[in-house]
Simulated scan of single mutants.
Amino acid sequence: MFGPGGPTFRELAVQALSSVEHGYDLLARKFDHTPFRTPDHVLESVAKALAPLGPFEDGLDLCCGTGAGTQVLTALCRRSVTGVDFSAGMLDVARDGGRSAGAPGVAWVRGDARALPFTAAFDLVVSFGAFGHFLPRELPGLFGQVHSVLRPGGRFAFPVFAPPRPAHPGYWTLLGFDAVMRVRNALWRPPFVMYYRTFPLSTVQRELARTGFTVELRALPEFGRRADGSPRARLVTARRAGPRPAGGQPAAGRVNS
């Protein structure tokens, strides 16, 4: 499926009946040949929007997968870049794929975003396409973990796209996908948590603010606007309170790199 190099239908079915971690281990070698990999134009748009907020010293790609998002960090961070993911298979592909070429210093770390193995070591954390793997009740803990690994004045940034309206076929596609996943998880163990409609912007802003972040929204102009004038895509930037220390401190607390 998805063209040459992509997984077969059978491989996708086996993944869908596995746990999230094992499913991505199975898919890892073919992941970059699927539409699930964040497109380059999204990465480039985010990098462009973040550039005026720098310079940054140390960056973390949260739920990095095969490392596509590290392209953003290596262009923005002057000292080090870290990718963290709980799938050993995805990290192996990231290491083998040369994602670190030209970077000031890159580490790949196996770890769970719900219990990050770092101290306050970063002044920029980004994430792409991973939030569907977290249930709404997990967001406070997830955002708390990100807050804990940022230095004072550090930023947590990620793109959010406006959901399709009911008149658009995509609305029903996403609704149907989430419904199928809920049925699958009710009937089959282990669960495979992946939903497209459980990360509304209003909820995200509220939970980030409760965690202690100051939240800003920036339109990503490359994606245009909807008929009502609202942006099709926004960059969420959540800032931890406090001044950024001059020069930062060396990244610390890495394990399993």
Rank of each mutant, 00 (worst) to 15 (best):
R37Q: 09
R37P: 07
R37G: 07
T38I: 08
T38Q: 06
T38W: 10
D40G: 15
H41T: 14
H41P: 14
H41L: 14
V42W: 08
V42T: 02
V42A: 09
L43R: 15
L43T: 13
E44A: 15
E44T: 15
S45R: 11
S45G: 09
S45K: 11
V46R: 06
V46G: 05
A47D: 06
A47M: 09
K48M: 13
K48C: 13
K48P: 12
A49K: 04
L50H: 11
L50Y: 08
A51C: 08
A51M: 07
A51Q: 06
L53N: 14
L53I: 14
G54T: 00
G54D: 00
G54S: 06
G54K: 00
P55H: 06
F56W: 03
F56Y: 05
E57Y: 08
E57R: 11
E57A: 12
D58I: 06
D58F: 12
D58M: 09
G59F: 11
G59V: 06
L60A: 01
D61E: 07
L62W: 02
C63Y: 06
C63W: 09
C64V: 10
G65K: 11
G65C: 06
G65M: 07
T66Y: 08
G67Y: 10
A68I: 15
A68T: 15
G69W: 10
T70G: 13
T70V: 14
Q71P: 14
V72W: 12
V72S: 06
V72F: 12
V72G: 11
L73Q: 07
T74Q: 14
T74N: 15
A75K: 13
L76M: 12
L76G: 08
C77I: 05
C77G: 09
C77H: 05
R78T: 00
R79L: 05
T82K: 12
T82G: 10
T82D: 09
T82C: 11
G83V: 06
V84C: 04
D85Y: 03
D85W: 04
D85I: 05
D85T: 03
A88I: 05
A88K: 07
G89Y: 04
M90L: 04
L91P: 00
L91C: 02
D92A: 15
V93M: 00
A94R: 06
A94N: 03
A94E: 00
R95Y: 09
D96G: 09
G97V: 02
G98K: 05
G98P: 01
G98L: 03
G98Q: 01
R99N: 02
R99G: 00
S100F: 15
S100Y: 15
A101H: 10
A103M: 07
A103L: 05
G105D: 11
G105V: 08
V106S: 13
V106I: 13
W108N: 04
W108M: 07
W108G: 05
V109P: 02
R110Q: 14
R110W: 15
R110A: 14
R110D: 13
G111N: 10
G111D: 08
D112G: 01
D112H: 04
A113K: 02
A113H: 00
A113F: 02
R114L: 10
A115N: 03
A115D: 04
A115C: 06
A115V: 02
